[in-house]
Computed example of a mutant assay.
Amino acid sequence: MATMTTTAPRSGDAAGGAEIRRHELAAFLRNRRERISPEEVGLPRGPRRRTPGLRREEVAHLSAVGVTWYTWLEQARPIQVSVQVLDALARTLRLDASERAHLFQLAGANDPMPAASCPSVTPAVREMLDRLGPIPAAVQNSRYDVVAYNRAYGMLLCDMDALPPEDRNCMLLAYFNEDWRSAVVHLEETRRLMTARLRAALAGHLGEPAWKMLLKRLKESPEFRRNWERYEVAGYRSKTKEYLNPHVGLLTVEHTDLWLAPETGSRVVMYTPGNEETRERLERLHRLAQAVPAQGS
């Protein structure tokens, strides 16, 4: 639950600008709340509903914040807003990338979600991803954010292009995306290992907003909580994996990490064919993927 903390009063133009931003933020939240129907978020409309869109208490509940606190936010009260709360509100209100950026700007906060451009994803890296052709490859960081990928990777486990950037995270997909989960042959073993790697990587990022946001989302899954509470840690290593792709069938691949920036965990993840049958199927997947323009590369 968000803490109801008021900001200290300020004077001059800075105070006036902050007040204007608070009122703009309040109006923006009200507008977007009224655009979301109860049915869109799985709530019954009910015969006595008069409010267009969602009620304040419904937004607060879906975002896991206090009703009073959210009411204050829509009343332009001088309260501080954490990036975790802003992220939750952006997802509840189904904001697109431009709207999300506007929300964070009005709140005077930096969005810690992975940006569309990553320092490790240079034009040369993007060209390398494309030239790998039928070999699925992506750039990931230590949080498992997928910040760039080629066409074959975009169709390997799910339709990556159909996901908003904030959901292109292998941990979130492994626990919440049905297509991704169905494609991983050894799902429970994979999720346990990924969780152990995430815990090991977390040690270098304690308290960082982006990590706190990711963990908050993941802990909505009972399966993740169970694996997280094992307190297992693991490093990265090459591994043979099996995926059941809906387009071409069973794939046996060798997972390899090529490190771009070890200090941030940025790496190119590649899946090379483990046998001739998989090689042929990956080439067929690549041909299918070429027919659809990719957004990740």
Rank of each mutant, 00 (worst) to 15 (best):
P44I: 09
T51I: 13
T6F: 14
V41L: 02
A26S: 08
A8Y: 03
P38L: 09
T6D: 10
V41I: 07
V41F: 00
P38Q: 09
I20N: 00
R33L: 10
R48G: 05
R10V: 04
L25N: 06
R32F: 09
R45M: 11
A27W: 01
G42P: 00
G42R: 03
R50D: 09
T7Y: 02
A2F: 01
M4P: 01
T5V: 14
R30T: 11
S37T: 15
P44F: 04
G12M: 11
R48H: 14
P52C: 01
D13W: 05
E39Y: 07
G16T: 05
R32N: 13
T7W: 02
S37H: 09
A26C: 08
R48E: 09
R22A: 11
G42M: 03
R32T: 08
R49T: 10
R33A: 09
G16W: 01
E39I: 12
S37R: 13
R49C: 08
T5Q: 09
H23T: 14
A18C: 03
N31L: 07
P44N: 11
P47R: 13
T3S: 10
N31E: 13
A14M: 04
R50G: 13
P38M: 10
G17M: 07
A18R: 07
A14Y: 03
A27R: 14
T7D: 12
H23I: 10
R22M: 05
F28T: 12
A15L: 02
E19K: 06
A14L: 08
R22K: 12
E40Y: 01
A2Y: 00
R30W: 05
L29F: 03
L43H: 02
N31K: 12
T3A: 13
R33G: 07
A18Q: 11
P9D: 12
A15N: 03
A15C: 02
A14D: 06
R10E: 09
A26Q: 03
R45Y: 02
T51L: 10
E19V: 07
T7E: 15
L29A: 08
R45T: 15
L43W: 00
A2G: 12
P9F: 04
G46E: 10
R49D: 06
P44Y: 02
G42C: 03
R48N: 09
R22D: 03
P52H: 02
